[in-house]
C-alpha cells in the first residue's frame, strides 16, 4: 500500500458516497446513467470472484463494499426512485461495450482460465463503463453540481491509480500491462470533463457544456 493507492481507493469510496447522497437528498436519480451503474455492478461482480481468497481485511472489506453498494445503487435507480429515471436520456448502446470487452478479454489475457478471463473482462469494462454517463452528460449539456462532484471523485480515483503504478514500478518493479493500458484509457476519457469541471464548477458556476 502506498499514499497514491490509498488516496485513490478513498476517492473511489467518496465517489460512491457522493452518488448515494445525491440520490437520497434529491430523492431522484435524474442525470445519472443507469447503464453506467449497471456496468459497474458487472465490473465488481466479475472482478471479485476471488472474494474468498484472503489478501487483507482491507481488501476483503472494500470488495464487499463495492459489490454491495453497486447493487444497492441499481436497486435505488430501478425500484425505489424508478419514476425519476428517464431512459430516453440514457441511450448509449452498452451491448457493444460488453461484446468488445469480452472479445478483448478472450484474446488479450495473462492466462486463459475462466476466472482470469472474467477478471480481464472486468478491467476492460471498467475502462469504458463511464461512457454512457459521459454520453448522457453531453446530450443534456448540463449537470447538477453534486453529480459533477461524483464524476470528479471517480476520475480522480483513476488518475491517482496511474501515479500508484508509477510508484510501484520504481519501488517494487510491479508490472501489469493489462491494468496499465486500460487504466490510462479510462483516465483519458475524463480529460474533457476535468477541464470543464475546473473551468466552471471550481469557480462556482453551473456545469454546462460550451
Amino acid at each position: 500500500m502506498n499514499f497514491f493507492r490509498l488516496t485513490a481507493d478513498l476517492m473511489h469510496l467518496l465517489s460512491i458516497f457522493v452518488l448515494l447522497l445525491k440520490i437520497q437528498k434529491t430523492r431522484s436519480c435524474s442525470g445519472i446513467s443507469f447503464k453506467t451503474q449497471l456496468l459497474y455492478a458487472v465490473v465488481f461482480v466479475t472482478r471479485y470472484l476471488d472474494l474468498l481468497k484472503w489478501i487483507s481485511l482491507y481488501n476483503t472489506l472494500m470488495k464487499i463494499f463495492f459489490i454491495a453498494s453497486s447493487i444497492y445503487i441499481l436497486y435505488l435507480m430501478k425500484i425505489k426512485f424508478r419514476a425519476t429515471y428517464d431512459p430516453s436520456q440514457d441511450t448509449f448502446r452498452i451491448e457493444f461495450l460488453l461484446g468488445a470487452c469480452l472479445l478483448l478479454a478472450l484474446v488479450f489475457n495473462y492466462t486463459f482460465t475462466f476466472i482470469e478471463v472474467l477478471w480481464t473482462f472486468s478491467i476492460y469494462l471498467e475502462a469504458v463503463a463511464i461512457l454512457p454517463q459521459l454520453f448522457m452528460l453531453s446530450r443534456t449539456g448540463e449537470a447538477e453540481t453534486i453529480t459533477t462532484h461524483y464524476l470528479f471523485a471517480l476520475g480522480a480515483y483513476r488518475g491517482l491509480y496511474l501515479l500508484n503504478w508509477i510508484w510501484r514500478f520504481y519501488t517494487e518493479h510491479h508490472i501489469d500491462w493489462i491494468v496499465w493500458v486500460a487504466g490510462a484509457i479510462q483516465t483519458a476519457l475524463y480529460s474533457d470533463f476535468f477541464y470543464i469541471y475546473y473551468k466552471k464548477v471550481l469557480h462556482g458556476q453551473k456545469f454546462e457544456l460550451p
Binding site: R5, D9, H12, D50, I55, S56, N59, M62, K63, F66, Y110, T111, E116, W119, Y161, N164, H174, I175, D176, W177, I178, V179
Partner: peptide, 10 residues
C-alpha cells in the same frame, strides 16, 4: 506473469 498472480489492487 507475476502480475497475474498477485492481484492485491482493487
Amino acid at each position: 506473469e507475476a502480475a497475474a498472480k498477485n492481484k492485491d489492487e482493487l
